[in-house]
Design a protein around this nucleic acid. Structure first.
Length: 843
RNA sequence: GCCCGCUUGGUGGAAUUGGUAGACACAAGGGACUUAAAAUCCCUCGGCCAUUGCGGCCGUGCCGGUUCGAGUCCGGCAGCGGGCACCA
């Protein structure tokens, strides 16, 4: 018999598919090339990857999953669009450019070429003629047009906003480039710097983004919850506190106006106008404000740092208690949120409590928890209001309503709905991104650049500090599109999240002259199945939803939600290795000798760490290349799909891939040797046929629900049964079983199943055979197993005829020896029958 | 710190709506075949006790609750992971 040789076999099929695509204008696996309008569209898309250089197993899993769906849906008769794309702008290219002295463009394009080859070796059935790379001018020129459309619509504006500034490198740092408050390369303490930056008005869509979450029924619940919390709708009150001895007031927003009687101080952001004013007269306030400027801008830092403040000397009047409250400048309130000021109620807020204890401020309890509940401060639970004048005795909820009415009566507060969601800052002071098509003209001010595209210059110096676009000798100097006078280009580029917030619209017709082909979009969108990492649950997915709605309101598309069904997959992990010096070792540098794991080079024992997310720093990355060479793409694909559910993390193990390899070999032999039949047992044959149809039904259902690992387990059960029953079933049934197994495995294992299909004598390709449909009438059950419980404990398992009626069933069960023994001398108080599952006696 | 998840044998994981915990695999151990190894095939495989066979007790991160019955529902706790607005 011919042995299974994946290397030659996979090459043969890949060449054949590539030839078909080239000759007949077909997609990579014998399917018609997709047009802009089709009858039965199905759009499957994986989140666009960053082209880091090499595919790793995490990518392989992502694409194998997408490809499974693409092939499965094609076989079910859909016209499938499955386009590849590259999220090609971004920081890593600039870092690589500095480190290796290559241009970001060359580095990125080389990476894309390498990864494209690897995807082809994995036989991912992409529509390569739809490929898009965000750093191609063809793509970002279209994005510039969209930017202008949003600008015209009033959804783009400029405002001052803080960035992390590295005073040594004279450059803006990303949050990940700030380590312990210092620049990662310079080590200099990071400062906050105010810059005028571009923003998208996502806050205008807060309500719609929130409301439409309800319609996303095919998204994971957890993703919808995370977005809901991120948008953070709250209803509360704006309260004006009059400042003593002035005609000014400080406005704060709170969701708890009911606790206003417990309010004992006001906290101002260091950037609040009144704080700035106070700094003029008080040196300690000025110093404190300076100190606040030296912290990075991340939320995590804000929440976890020591809460500090300085008394401004200002006093405000509490409108309810009429008491004077001190005003502090504090380091935990940001000017960008709300009004840049809060009032502190130490008795009922964790953060205010800590702050009040530290500065010895008054703590006034105003909520009493229910009887028996712990009353330790700060108390944040429900309860009854106390020490609160006209609010006394009310519940927290009633108190909020009553306090609001009173505030409005007093003329010092109003009800207000607010959102946590902030406008999307899209300015980046970096080279490797999409230029923002705006110019600054001395005469006309800010003017949209209509002479598109604004192309990135290639002759830039990246090693120098600062943004190369600012330092470029000529690039930024242009004429004003409006008056023709001298003007200066915007040197900020767009956040790469902008690139990925509309690519799914472009991909349906990436060569269109307008950014968006409305007809093609109408035909294909929404994306039927979107697949990507859970780490994108909020930001990318929210930006994409916003952009879709914004472009709709610009009149460019007729679509409100881009992704119908979302699948979030887990990470790929691998165990880690360290030698006695504590250096990380890669999986290739170690081997197992007599049960001990040792370093190949030295023979010394290696410390094996737990499986962690594959990362370059820990060297626990497995490149699919070696795996494909050793076992073939089919085995690699099968393994990454077979063991864990797609939405969970996945541990890569050497032994695991070996198991997939062994299974493919077994299947190969099974299909090629139909074997001799000794005695055909009609009953067994019938049961086997039933099992085949049951498998078709179950696998189809599992794949539909993305339970790929369960589907594969069912296929393995089928082939296990077939080979076990082979001596007793007819050759026709055996062969039918093998054919079904090949059809079901095709989406994961396309090369080998295609080859075997051909070797079984079929003329056409397996790729063009429809997905099998289970014949329910063939599924027969001859017996059903009941578990018998007595007082909740399983005491026996009994096989019975499924057609047996309940009375006879109970009688038969009671007659069972074990059951008799346990029921002896006991009165049955209750009998519960769960059809086809359990009979429970309570005695 | 805040938000969202996750936790089942030595390992990855199964277990429609609360109804037989451990499907399907991996690893390990034993056996067959072989001069030998690999490959292949067969058997065992949660723990403890009993063992001639039948069986019994415990067990789904920890503590408690609801129920005839809880991996699944509720309350509390711990550990791990993701996100936190300039990594993508």
């Amino acid at each position: 018999m011919v042995t299974y040789a994946p290397s030659t076999l996979e090459k043969k099929w890949q060449q054949q598919w590539a030839k078909q695509q080239a000759e007949a204008g077909k997609a990579s696996n014998g399917v018609e090339a997709v047009g802009n309008t089709v009858k039965n569209p199905y759009y499957v898309l994986e989140m666009m990857p960053y082209p880091s250089g090499r595919l790793h197993m995490g990518h392989a899993r992502n694409y194998a999953l997408g490809d499974l769906i693409a092939r499965f849906k094609r076989k079910q008769g859909f016209d499938v669009l499955h386009p590849p794309s590259w999220d090609a702008f971004g920081l890593p290219a600039e870092n690589a450019a500095i480190k290796h002295k290559v241009s970001p463009k060359v580095w990125t394009e080389k990476n894309i070429a390498a990864m494209r080859d690897q995807l082809k070796r994995l036989a991912i059935s992409y529509d390569w003629d739809h490929e898009v790379s965000t750093c191609d001018v063809d793509y970002y020129a279209q994005q510039q047009k969209l930017f202008l459309a949003l600008y015209e619509k009033g959804l783009v504006y400029q405002k001052e906003s803080s960035v992390n500034w590295d005073p040594v490198e004279q450059t803006v740092l990303a949050n990940e480039q700030v380590v312990d408050g210092k620049g990662w390369r310079s080590g200099a303490p990071v400062e906050k710097k105010k810059l005028k930056q571009w923003f998208f008005k996502i806050s205008a869509y807060a309500e719609e983004l929130l409301a439409d979450l309800d319609g996303l029924t095919e998204w994971p619940e957890k993703v919808r919850t995370m977005q809901e919390k991120w948008i953070g709708k709250s209803t509360g009150a704006l309260i004006q506190f009059p400042v003593v001895e002035t005609d000014q007031s400080i406005e704060v927003y709170t969701t708890r106006p009911d606790t206003l009687f417990g309010g004992t101080f006001v906290g101002l952001s260091a950037e609040h106008p009144l704080a700035m004013e106070a700094a003029k007269n008080k040196a300690d306030v000025a110093d404190f404000i300076k100190k606040c400027a030296k912290q990075d801008t991340s939320q995590k830092t804000l929440d976890t740092m020591e809460k500090e403040g300085v008394d401004t000397g200002l006093r405000v009047i509490n409108p309810f208690s009429k008491k004077e409250m001190p005003v502090y400048v504090v380091n935990y309130v940001l000017m960008d949120y709300g009004t840049g000021a809060v009032y502190g109620c130490p008795a009922h807020d964790e953060r205010d409590y800590v702050f009040a204890r530290k500065y010895d401020l008054a703590i006034q309890p105003v909520v009493s928890g229910p009887e028996g509940a712990a009353q330790e401060l700060p108390y944040v639970g429900p309860g009854t209001l106390i020490n609160s004048g006209f609010l006394d005795g009310l519940s927290v909820e009633e108190g909020i309503k009553t306090a609001l009415v009173k505030l409005e009566d007093l003329g010092c507060g109003q009800a207000q709905t607010t959102y946590r969601l902030r406008d999307w800052g899209v300015s980046r002071q970096r080279y490797w991104g999409c230029p923002i098509p705006m110019v600054q003209c001395g005469a006309c001010g800010v003017v949209p650049e209509t002479r598109l595209p604004v192309q990135l210059p290639e002759d830039v110096v990246l090693e120098k500090a600062g943004n190369p676009l600012v330092d470029h000798p000529s690039w930024k100097h242009v004429t004003c599109p409006k008056c023709g006078g001298p003007a200066v280009r915007e040197t900020d580029t767009l956040d790469t999240f902008v690139d990925s917030s509309w690519y799914f619209l472009r991909l349906v017709n990436p060569k269109a002259e307008t950014p968006l082909d409305a007809a093609a979009i109408k035909n294909w969108l929404p994306v039927n199945q979107y697949i990507g990492g859970i780490e994108h649950a909020v930001m990318h997915l929210l930006y994409a939803r916003f952009m879709t709605k914004a472009l709709r309101d610009c009149g460019l598309i007729d679509l409100s939600e881009p992704f119908q069904k979302l699948m979030t997959q887990g990470m790929v992990c691998h165990e880690t290795y360290r030698n006695s010096q504590g250096d990380w070792l890669s999986p290739e540098e170690i081997e197992t000798v007599e049960g001990r794991v040792v370093e190949k080079a030295t023979g010394q024992e290696v410390q094996v760490g737990s499986a962690e997310k594959m990362s370059k720093s820990k060297l626990n990355v497995v490149d699919p290349e070696g795996i494909i060479n050793a076992y073939g793409a089919d085995a690699a694909r099968l393994f990454v799909l077979s063991d864990s559910p797609p939405d969970k993390d996945f541990d890569w193990t050497e032994t695991g891939i070996h198991g997939a390899w062994k299974y493919l070999n077994r299947l190969w032999r099974m299909c090629l040797e139909c074997g001799s039949v000794e005695v055909v047992n009609a009953d067994t044959d019938k049961q086997q046929l039933s099992a085949i149809h049951e498998t078709i039904r179950d696998v189809t259902r599992h794949f539909d629900q993305f339970h790929v690992n369960k589907g594969i387990a069912r296929i393995r059960e089928l082939t296990n049964q077939l080979s076990q029953n082979q001596p007793e079933i007819s050759p026709e049934t055996y062969r039918f079983g093998c054919e079904v197994a090949l059809q079901l495995l095709f989406p994961m294992v396309p090369h080998m199943t295609s080859e075997l299909w051909q070797r079984l004598g079929f003329d056409g390709e397996l790729a063009s055979v429809s997905w099998p449909v289970a014949d329910e009438t063939m599924i027969v059950k001859t017996s059903v197993c009941y578990a018998v419980q007595i007082n909740g404990k399983v005491r026996a398992k009994i096989d019975v005829d499924p057609s047996l009626d309940q009375e006879l069933l109970i009688a038969q069960v009671k007659d069972h020896e074990m059951v008799k023994k346990h029921l002896e001398n006991k009165a049955i108080r209750k009998t519960i029958v769960v059809p086809n599952k359990v009979i429970s006696f309570v005695v």
